[in-house]
Design a protein around this nucleic acid. Structure first.
Length: 507
RNA sequence: GCCGUGUUCGUCUAGCCGGCCCAGGACGCCAGGUUUUCAUCCUGGAAAUCGGGGGUUCGAAUCCCCCACACGGUACCA
């Protein structure tokens, strides 16, 4: 049987990178097995709905190359895929549970529950609505049939709670964690159906997974504690439960605990795939895309946070990941996010992008700075600089001297390299360069080398001084490559300007 | 508090149906090499008494027990 999996986020804000990984694992698993991956929006909590979150989620996966086969924004035979649009169908399932004795009405108001919790807290205990306390509460278990009917007829607010059977061992068979057992006595009677007529996550999730014929539930570890309830719900409905796989959490880079939006702000790295502007506060959270990350790098980095193919291979394309992925090899413990490794992946994948494409991108940056240069020059520069950048946004910093003259000269380098006779030698070198007609970089290189050797000069000293006049610092690729791109006229011009400016500084 | 899950280099991890592991790889770090410089790149190195303590065994990171710590859950949130 082909697996059917789902990613089911709540539209309560931008999609967290941990959620992206969950979706990725679902996707890899589905694709590997020729299965179906669907996107379901779980918007049962109307109070937490955030404008634009749904669109954000869809756009994020588009950018990352995680493709859904079915669901919100795509369609399919199991729709609607948004729980708010499925609202009318949940009540009958809750009713069914009541009829079969698996659930009951509860009329306790939020205020009454709050009061109970306080009472318990005062005795240093924690109140739990469960099989020990439900007999003391206002519900269809303690009220007479008539009373319940009357309350319902009067439209008194109610919730429907699951009724755990006493002293039952519930077994959750998890692909990653093995068998997890829990006694029903410790579980609370979770609300399945809220007083606003919406199901809670637990009910909606199970009903939808069943109706949508989900075969594997791959989700974050934070759901493990409610897995026993879910297992019981399947049992109560008489449905076959899907297989579960609870993923380890993504942890913050320093200290312990779940990776949160705040950690990103604090440590200066994105926690979200795309930039997000909060519609209410206007607060902006950075995204991987806007920070210059390539989707391939984000995918590769994320895939390895909690999973590995079992050998030493670390660089993998989406297709390779699909080939190699397995739920069984997912680790059990949480993984700390590592910014350095993310950068390294980005550098790696950047090298595979054709110069022309990077140049296209870079051209807009240059245009923004009021620099207008021919495309072929940009392509050449990019080709020369590419290997030393980690993000496309580094291009400018690493290559600005190709497009603008130095405005300052590194004083450390002057101190170390600029000597008594430097000026004269540079003038000689300028003459040599002009004598190479037409200009040819290897010929120019040979001639300059001859000059340096013929006069028994210190190569590092002369060449770095030379570089200083062109670049303003002791950095950058091969000097003759730079000269080739700048053109001899520009080079001579910069040399003269440099000699004059540095000559003054050296005194 | 209660329930659950987890614990191998700084980080991600391999190994976990016992011996090939005085623990392997990657990122980062350090050193050397390449280069006229910086970066890249290449080579090498340091880095985990396998959370702690008990067992079992000829032999344990690997099996068993106890403890500690961390994390997650404990909402009419997902």
């Amino acid at each position: 049987m082909k697996p059917r999996v789902r990613f089911a986020p709540s539209p309560t804000g931008p999609l967290h990178i941990g959620g992206v990984r969950t979706a990725l694992y679902n996707y890899l698993f589905a694709k590997q097995n020729g299965g179906t991956m669907l996107l379901r929006i779980e918007d049962t909590d109307q109070t937490r709905f955030v404008e634009g979150a749904e669109e954000y989620i869809i756009e994020a996966f588009q950018w990352l190359g995680v493709k859904f086969d079915e669901g919100v924004g795509i369609g399919g035979n199991y729709g609607p895929y948004k729980q708010s649009e499925r609202k009318p169908m949940y009540k009958q399932y809750a009713d069914q549970l009541i009829e079969n004795g698996w659930a009951y009405y509860a009329f306790d108001t939020p205020e009454m529950l709050e009061q109970k919790r306080k009472e318990y807290e005062a005795q240093k205990k924690t109140f739990q609505y469960d099989l020990h306390t439900r007999e003391t509460m206002v519900n269809s278990l303690t009220l007479s049939k008539e009373e319940v009917a009357e309350k319902l007829a009067n439209n008194e607010p109610f919730v429907i709670r699951f009724k755990h059977t006493p002293d039952t061992e519930i077994l959750v068979n998890d692909i990653i964690r093995g068998e997890v057992r829990i006694n029903s006595n410790t579980l609370d009677d979770k609300v399945l159906y809220k007083s606003d007529g919406m199901p809670t996550y637990h009910l909606a999730n199970i009903v939808d997974d069943h109706l949508m014929e989900i075969t594997h539930v791959i989700r974050g570890e934070e759901w493990l504690p409610s897995a026993p309830l879910h297992v019981m719900l399947y049992k109560a409905f008489g449905w076959e439960a899907p297989r579960f796989a609870h993923l380890p959490l993504l942890l913050k880079p320093d200290g312990n605990g779940k990776l949160s939006k705040r950690d990103g702000d604090r440590l200066g790295f994105p926690v979200f795939p795309l930039q997000w502007k909060d519609p209410k506060s206007g607060e902006i959270s950075s995204g991987y895309r806007e920070s210059g990350y390539l989707p391939e790098a984000v995918i590769n980095m994320l895939a390895l946070l909690g999973w590995n193919p079992g050998n030493d291979q670390e660089v993998m394309s989406m297709d390779e990941l699909i080939q190699l992925f397995s739920l069984e090899k997912i680790s059990k413990s949480g993984a700390k996010f590592d910014l350095e490794k993310a950068k390294w992946f980005n550098h790696h994948y950047l090298q595979a992008i054709p110069d022309e494409n990077l140049a296209e991108d870079f051209k807009t940056t240059l245009t923004d700075k009021g620099i207008d240069v021919p495309m072929d020059k940009i392509v050449k520069v990019v080709g020369l600089i590419k290997e030393r950048i980690y993000f496309t946004k580094d291009l400018w910093e690493q290559s600005h001297y190709f497009f603008e003259r130095p405005t300052s000269y590194d004083e450390q380098v002057i101190k170390k390299r600029w000597k008594e006779g430097t000026e004269g030698h540079l003038k000689q070198i300028a003459n040599i360069l002009t004598s190479v007609v037409p200009f040819e970089k290897s010929a120019a290189h040979d001639k300059v080398m001859d000059y340096i050797k013929g006069n028994e000069l210190n190569m590092g000293q002369i060449m770095n001084s030379f570089r200083l006049t062109l670049v303003g610092a002791a950095k950058g690729p091969d000097l003759f490559e730079i000269i080739d791109i700048l053109g001899v006229d520009e080079v001579i011009c910069r040399m003269n300007a440099g000699i004059e400016a540095i000559g003054k500084m050296a005194k």
